[in-house]
Amino acid sequence: MSAPRISVLLPIYKVEDYIEHCLDSLLSQSFTDFEIIAVDDSSPDRSGEIAARLLAQQDRIPWKLIRNTDNKGLAETRKIAASEARGGWARMRSSVGTSTCSCLPASARSSPTAW
């Protein structure tokens, strides 16, 4: 499998009310040359379970879910996600974001020579 253009780095912690909308937004795009690297930062709610279920229900977008055994904080969680990324570009995504993310096609077009 070839490396995707973009790796979407998705830290997960206490976002049970938002993670489904966030992933639905990412997974419903027509642009598919990306992967999702989600890191459950030992969230005390069901955020990680919800993410695992939604990601496993689809096979269009490659994904990886990492589960921290203890809470490491946002900066370390992003580093963990970045270390697993295979894409030519990395894009941070907030799991709390409530807007529809259509930013990936624009990201891919912004610097075509860098791919």
Rank of each mutant, 00 (worst) to 15 (best):
A52I: 01
S83N: 13
R67V: 08
K79H: 06
G87D: 03
R53V: 07
R67Q: 14
A56V: 08
P62C: 05
I50D: 00
A90I: 05
G87E: 01
E49G: 12
E76W: 00
A75S: 13
S83Y: 00
E76D: 09
L54E: 09
K64M: 12
K72H: 06
I80A: 08
L54A: 04
A90P: 00
R53M: 07
G73V: 10
D59C: 11
R86D: 03
R60I: 03
W63F: 14
P62L: 08
K64Q: 12
P62D: 07
K72C: 05
R67Y: 04
K72G: 13
Q58L: 04
M92Q: 10
I61C: 01
R91G: 09
R67D: 12
G73I: 08
T77W: 03
A90L: 12
A75P: 10
R86L: 13
I61P: 00
L54D: 05
G88E: 11
G87Q: 00
W89Q: 08
A56P: 09
W89V: 09
A56Y: 06
L74V: 15
A51R: 11
L54H: 02
L54Y: 08
A81E: 03
I50S: 01
I80Q: 10
Q58K: 00
L55F: 15
R53E: 06
L55D: 03
L54C: 08
A56I: 09
G73F: 06
M92N: 14
R53G: 02
A82E: 15
K79C: 10
D59S: 13
G88D: 09
N68I: 07
L54S: 04
D59P: 05
W63G: 00
K72M: 11
R78L: 15
D59T: 13
Q57F: 03
E49H: 09
L54F: 05
P62H: 06
R91V: 15
Q58A: 03
A75F: 10
R78H: 12
L55S: 09
A51N: 12
I61T: 01
R91L: 15
A51W: 11
I50Q: 01
T69Y: 10
G88H: 12
P62Y: 08
T69H: 12
I66P: 05
